[in-house]
Design a protein around this nucleic acid. Structure first.
Lengths: 259, 259
DNA sequence: AAGTGGTCTAGACCACTTG
DNA sequence: AAGTGGTCTAGACCACTTC
């Protein structure tokens, strides 16, 4: 037989099949990328080389390379900016949703730079869905709808939708909503939520949300919602937060709740 | 020009380009699948048709189809069993990690059938890493290492690693560890944790974990860890939980923590 | 204008599950 | 034994960002 025949059959040309470990190629590429990232000590938010360059380096197609990159993305080691490329993830922001402390405060406390951008603020009726969800008396009850985007170190990490009962915090729209809402409620209205119910789970961002977070359509996200009650136990605020999943670690301390 | 020329160029042959909506094809397939799933009222845990069949139905390749399926997977609507196929996700288990209530109890309370399988149970020194992580006095301190797999309705949803200070619950290995550890500690040892610190975030399952949960390598997971303290404030237990991300919704109630 | 990531095709082989 | 999902190749075009 002619040894010089080109490897027409892909099977023998696949490098990973000749190696001892029976791992898929994209897992080996991921591991290599992890060690490369660690060795080069790439700073947070720095950009990775182009996909075509990486694919050439690992002798694979872009499809396979992207499979490896998506693993690192799910693990929170790198993130994507839509159509811009891949970047090294900074450490997760540690967020305790049970604490009466606003985004601006706990991000600053971790040595990072927070920014809040108010995308929308309006007053209107709650509507049937929200009234039921919040446990309001009637759907015509007036509420404020806020939509805000929050940044950490030049990167959008969170979309936040707040619904606040209007009579609980009148004149809210005259305030500066690009600051801490927690602080505003405390200092302007003297309010401290006495109780809240939280729910959170992973899910995908919808297309609009992904665009607003400069993420790719269909990106993973982390969803957190909070229903807060006022001093008399009445529902006063309903929040929904959509996070970049690599940007966040939820932490909390429990005081031994007796049965 | 000859109108009968075959469409050699893929551009004009791609169906999604001729549609009004500028959405990528895989997003349209996802939407179609969502409505199909809703219309057919497929029961939880039932299997979807084969990928090749779905790809033919949507006139796309398997690559594109799988992109759509992976979106539904991230959203928690369907899940995968490695090499077996795609299945409809049942409702998420609601889990309050601040409550003193075990897996067996809260799964049952939600009308589902829990099962706990003890994969490993041994006694040994904590080791340097764990001792530091738990705040133990010295790394030689004896602890129990448990590794358990938990099921809901015939499906493995959770891997749990428990580390318990041995002197806090002696003779633990003589007990039935395929039941509720919470209950065991309470009834056998009279223990109720007085305080705990939690941390959670999305990440990927490693290969062994994925295999144990019958998931595909590199699947998304949800990580939750808990460091619990005993009656005198001493560290007594360190848990790490790796969940199938579609199986879980974390819920909790906060009593207005004053500053 | 050049280059990038996003999307897609049309195949292929293999390991594994199912019957 | 047949069929499935898991993995991979070698291209391609487009929309968008960057320069």
């Amino acid at each position: 037989m002619n040894d010089d025949l080109p490897l027409a059959d892909g099977a023998q040309a696949r490098p990973y099949l000749s190696l001892r470990a029976p791992q898929p190629h994209y897992l080996r590429i991921r591991d290599q990328l992890v060690t490369d990232l660690a060795r080069d000590l790439l700073p947070a938010d720095s950009q990775l080389p182009a996909e075509r360059e990486l694919a050439e380096r690992f002798a694979c197609t872009r499809v396979t390379l992207r499979q490896a990159l998506q693993l690192l993305e799910s693990d929170g080691l790198i993130y994507r900016q839509n159509r811009r490329g891949w970047y090294v993830s900074p450490p997760r922001i540690r967020y305790d949703p049970t604490r009466i402390s606003g985004f601006m405060e706990y991000v600053t406390a971790q040595g990072r730079t927070p920014r809040t951008e108010c995308l929308q603020a309006q007053r209107g009726p709650a509507g049937a869905w929200l009234a039921k969800r919040m446990g309001l008396d009637h759907p015509e009850q007036q509420v404020f709808h806020l939509q805000r985007r929050r940044w950490v170190d030049q990167r959008p990490v969170l979309l936040e939708y707040n619904v606040l009962v209007a009579e609980w915090c009148p004149e809210l729209l005259g305030q500066d909503l690009s600051t801490s809402l927690t602080q505003l409620l405390r200092e302007r209205f003297g309010h401290v939520q006495s109780r809240s119910a939280l729910l959170m789970h992973p899910e995908t961002l919808d297309e609009k949300q992904a665009a607003q977070l400069q993420a790719s359509p269909g990106s993973n996200g982390f969803y957190l919602e909070r229903l807060s009650f006022g001093e008399q136990g009445q529902p006063v605020e309903f929040d929904r937060e959509f996070w970049r999943p690599d940007a966040l670690a939820v932490v909390l301390e429990t005081q031994g709740a007796p049965l």
